[in-house]
């Protein structure tokens, strides 16, 4: 009996230690504890400790920036799952997509979530831009962050576009053929740009690999770094405030 009691006590104290290693303070019963909680926990740390009630009214941001970021995280997680099963070669890609759809556990669901989240992100980022414009939040001192935002919009579109090719079905190669054809009209650089994007003169194996690498490493990395700067600037410029 005594041994069991001691073991249970020990377990509680270890669990307590684990919990307090992550959540370094108890429930914030006072403002002071709440402020300290925010300073010592990363998730809370990227938020301001104090905000005005009017700033966090959902009717101001409509959550659009936050949702864009959340969708980026959803896309990262579901994308990792897809990567376990997907080989970026013209021989395997299409069959891998069919396997994901029909064989892999939750493969169809995860693929659908990745696809719809990508469409949703294009929409939320676009609407976030509209919110920022309509509230005039790009004005001094936030000009720079608006510029970063514009780049984020481009990255979001390019991420969607590079992902579009990967299923290697009739929809994807022809959509990408049409898309990359636009590049070739640029004076002088046009044909070279297209060649660089495709890794050849037509959409093929090299294109699939290039789009894949940009889709899973290049663009997400640049996008993530830009987001870090974007959020940091939101904090440094001060949030533009409520209506």
């Amino acid at each position: 009996m005594k041994v069991i009691r001691a073991a249970v006590d020990e377990m509680w104290s270890v669990m307590g230690q684990m919990t307090s290693a992550v959540f370094r303070h108890g429930l914030p019963m006072t403002d002071k504890i709440a402020a300290r909680t925010a300073l010592t926990n990363f998730v809370l740390h990227i938020h301001p400790v104090r905000v005005r009630r009017s700033w966090i009214r959902m009717s101001y941001t409509l959550c659009l920036g936050g949702l864009s970021f959340f969708l980026f995280i959803v896309l990262t997680v579901t994308g990792l799952y897809l990567m376990f099963y997907y080989v970026p070669s013209t021989q395997h890609a299409y069959q891998d997509m069919r396997d994901l759809q029909f064989v892999v556990t939750f493969g169809g669901l995860i693929r659908n979530m990745h696809r719809w989240a990508a469409h949703a992100m294009v929409i939320t980022v676009w609407l976030h831009m509209a919110r920022v414009f309509l509230t005039g939040a790009y004005k001094k001192p936030r000009e720079f962050n608006w510029g970063i935002g514009t780049l984020l919009l481009l990255i979001t579109l390019l991420l969607s576009f590079t992902g579009y090719l990967l299923p290697w079905d009739q929809l994807s190669i022809w959509a990408v053929t049409v898309g990359t054809n636009m590049a070739k009209y640029a004076p002088i650089a046009g044909p070279y740009t297209r060649y660089l994007m495709l890794g050849g003169t037509a959409v093929g194996d090299a294109t699939l690999l290039r789009f894949y690498v940009m889709h899973v490493v290049g663009l997400p990395l640049v996008g993530f770094l830009l987001m870090v700067v974007h959020f940091w600037r939101v904090r440094k410029d001060g949030f533009s405030g409520g209506l």
Binding site: A38, H47, V49, V51, R52, R53, G242
Partner: peptide, 20 residues
């Protein structure tokens, strides 16, 4: 001059837990 209206008198609250 950069907010839509003067919000300096609006109630200040701690972000955690309400905002989070």
């Amino acid at each position: 001059s950069t907010t839509i209206r003067d919000d300096s008198e609006d109630e200040m609250i701690v972000s955690f837990p309400e905002f989070i």
